[in-house]
Design a protein around this nucleic acid. Sequence first.
DNA 1: ACAAAATATACGACCGGTCGTTTATTTTGT
DNA 2: ACAAAATAAACGACCGGTCGTATATTTTGT
Lengths: 195, 195
Amino acid sequence: MNSKLSKRTKLLDQGVYLLMNQGYHATGINEIVNAVQVPKGSFYSYFGSKEEFAAESINHYIEPFIQLLTRHLQHSQADPLTALKNYYAELIVAVEKNGYKGGCLLGNLMGEIGDTSELCNQALKSAVERYKALQYKALLQAQKQGTVRNDRSAEIMANLLVNNWQGALLRMKIEQSVQPLHEFCDTLLNDYFVA
Amino acid sequence: MNSKLSKRTKLLDQGVYLLMNQGYHATGINEIVNAVQVPKGSFYSYFGSKEEFAAESINHYIEPFIQLLTRHLQHSQADPLTALKNYYAELIVAVEKNGYKGGCLLGNLMGEIGDTSELCNQALKSAVERYKALQYKALLQAQKQGTVRNDRSAEIMANLLVNNWQGALLRMKIEQSVQPLHEFCDTLLNDYFVA
DNA sequence: ACAAAATATACGACCGGTCGTTTATTTTGT
DNA sequence: ACAAAATAAACGACCGGTCGTATATTTTGT
């Protein structure tokens, strides 16, 4: 039966949702297991601790984003820069539907426990690195195509993308507006990066 | 006697320190009052609640930064752009001494409780706005002097500064390195902004 | 001026509740 | 019947916040 594995996945899904919207310390195991109708005792058969669970949630969270971005980059007939624009446009629409809630699990947990939980620190570093590497490759490819400027390294621009997006999400969160996210696109993807 | 007021200030000092390094939900009232040798009961004569205390801590936190930046902008004989560079260079040195710990209280609390605590949301918005306005004015002035490019609005560049700095601090936190902060200076202040 | 009464402040034990985790029991599969 | 997995109950610790009391200060009466 897949109910065991699916319960594990449900826990992670709910964990991602709650951890993103409430943070690590404000989210209790009870809240998670109650939401997905799993006995509290079972939680500790799936995960060794709350900290391990959070680290796994981080990986569980980033996967869909990596796949979505990969899809945009591969299955699109557009150049990589346009693919990046489309990807971020899709993200903004999604976040807008969500009522500007939560932001990014990676950013939130980086700020809250990024330097206090070794396990989560590792998971965060790995997730950010994978996510960044994907955008780095896209920028590098776009540079070769001539759609992105060549006089700045793709590495630096990838960092700009990642860091600015995180900052823009924080601004969105307190201002309850997607305006910072649109400005992010206009300033970087539609201006600074263009060849 | 100023012992009453100084105790209040000590509580806020300690609050800033603990809230920045551990976050809101991981920091208890007991931890704060024990650290500054103030009875727990007294805490609630100074502050109405933990939430109010955090909101006051936010204002208490940002003030020195605003004053330091103002000093750099006013008492410096350098142009505003150079003043900004000097200011951020000083910040980086300070953060390096601290062992990359904590990051920025504003950024951390924006991520953790920026959309769940109304009181803190207000305090965060106000603090960020004041801080941003200062840099906006500096950029505007630098534009008039011709040291900063005129074909991009100072508003957008100020947002870039604020947002990118927050993102860079998150990266610093998980990578335990000031490299993202230096890259921030090189990319924006020493490149994108220059006329 | 001074003792007594009234008021304000300081304080820590304590509240109900929740935390993350462990353990003992029940249920399940064979 | 029995080992293994699932689960409910219980654990001590700690949470934010309160409240009765002890101490200090001020006001009053003479």
